[in-house]
Design a protein around this nucleic acid. Structure first.
Lengths: 270, 270
DNA sequence: TGTCAAATCCCATATTTTGGGATTTAGTTT
DNA sequence: AAACTAAATCCCAAAATATGGGATTTGACA
């Protein structure tokens, strides 16, 4: 039941087939697919049915269950939308992680002095996962979302998160990135050389490696004992982020990361 | 398949049987129940099985699907936790609503001058739904969560949301509240008299009607045209909120609500 | 009042889920 | 170091559940 319908392409993501996925929960998975479809912009039953490849009947039953549980909202003329239950669980999920709580005020302080987008994130397997974000106040905004994942090897935040690992691990992250089809691949040796430099300075940069025109300065956050538990980055478009400014930001970014680390119980820091 | 198991009672909420619920999606609903159970503190398969009343097998399959879709996290020694996908969808749900976006900076400004908990909410059927919250900085904190619902008739925020309705509607909200077993019921006439007073002043109070010891001052937020689209409240415990302070807060709260209304395009406001 | 599109409901069929129990994985004890 | 324990994970026949075609209702609009 291919879904290559007319879909405005706004409903891009939502890869249904599932990789080596766990089968045996079709109904549950379809329900979750509905959440994805709604998040991607589907608003009526027809769009949902098309996205799932199921009949109106089935789609309606699933959607109705989600509405009843407040995972979706439904307004007769308007259609479906993400529901308050997701708000609740989302904020709970964030609250369950200690780092964002502690970091928030520090991020806000940093945000007050720079006009750019600030991200807080952790390492999630082979990805960098955003846990919090303070939008910048420039005319152009970095389009990222809390809960989203970005490649480790190409983002400043990602590189900050793996600063302490050895070169073998660095290679792994680089290769995973290449395998997933890196957009602006650089050769491994250059990348490793930069990583060594970043590691020795305790900061990481992103010179438009992940996204053209987007640059950032990032630093690792450490918990008691010194292990890296999170990272912090300041991002902006190239026009606001020339080399000189990136260097000027380093002090602030590192200082903020250190302050958060201290709040988490890390007393080190030559 | 009755669920009257041993449940440690820590997993209180999660009323399974579902009221006049939509049947025909057992698997999906059970999956959602798992999310609730994890949110309520269950961390291992045994706890989840107990909460759902299903066997380890079934529970495991559902949980595995949720983990695969990142709605849950699973760490061998630690157990299950709410996953990053919920973060993503939660923040998206919030972003989909325009009001929180516009209101945030104003709420933060208000928060800077008062030490108390600030809530932003909208009317959701017969409930007041919290869309955003800035925690207070007092020793005791108001335990509320974004995404949660509270009765309209007994909360300051709720009353602010229905300030423009006529008396017949007010009665409806009051009666729904009574039907649901109000805790500190007041007689209808007194309540209506107060509502009239609130409506004429453009503020609403909560004198420990919803929760003993919790008081608040609330004001409605209006969109272009003047219709109430949201509300704003400042809450604290009685010890920090005597009558005098509540009166003193009115100006600030109303001013903030007005500022947000103006940002939403409302130009009215005698 | 009539028309049309979308949502909602119904029910026999067959596909999907279920759960008992076997197996594997890790951490702890002897 | 090997046996023990607890929890997670996997397997498969039986049975309950979800499915979707089509009928019906709802409500906006003419």
């Amino acid at each position: 039941m291919s879904t290559a319908k007319a879909e405005p392409d706004a409903l891009k993501a939502a890869a249904r087939p599932a990789p080596g996925a766990a089968a045996g929960s079709q109904t549950l998975l379809r329900g979750l697919d509905i959440l994805d479809a709604v998040a991607a912009g589907a608003t009526d039953l027809a769009a949902l049915s098309a996205a799932l490849g199921t009949t109106r009947s089935t789609t309606h039953r699933l959607a109705a269950a989600l509405v009843e549980r407040r995972y979706l909202t439904f307004v007769p003329r308007e259609g479906y939308g993400l529901g308050p239950k997701l708000l609740e669980l989302g904020f709970r999920a964030q609250a369950a992680m200690a780092v964002p709580q502690v970091a928030r005020p520090h991020l806000e302080r940093l945000s007050a002095t720079c006009e750019d987008t600030i991200h807080l994130g952790i390492l999630d397997g082979e990805w960098a996962l955003y846990l919090d974000k303070i939008p910048g106040r420039r005319r152009v905004e970095i389009s990222s979302r809390v809960g989203e994942r970005q490649p480790v090897w190409s983002t400043g935040l990602g590189k900050a998160l793996i600063l302490d690992l050895d070169e073998a691990r660095w290679r792994d992250f680089y290769q995973v990135g290449q395998a997933r089809g890196a957009r602006h691949a650089r050769d491994l040796d250059t990348w490793l050389a930069r990583m060594r430099d970043y590691a020795s300075r305790g900061v990481a940069f992103d010179h438009e490696e992940n996204e053209p025109e987007v640059r950032c300065v990032a630093a690792p956050i450490r918990k008691a004992g010194g292990a890296i538990v999170a990272g912090l980055s300041v991002s902006s478009t190239a026009q606001y982020m020339d080399e000189a400014r990136m260097e000027r930001l380093v002090g602030e970014v590192v200082a903020t990361a250190r302050a958060i680390s201290r709040a988490l119980g890390w007393s080190g820091g030559g």
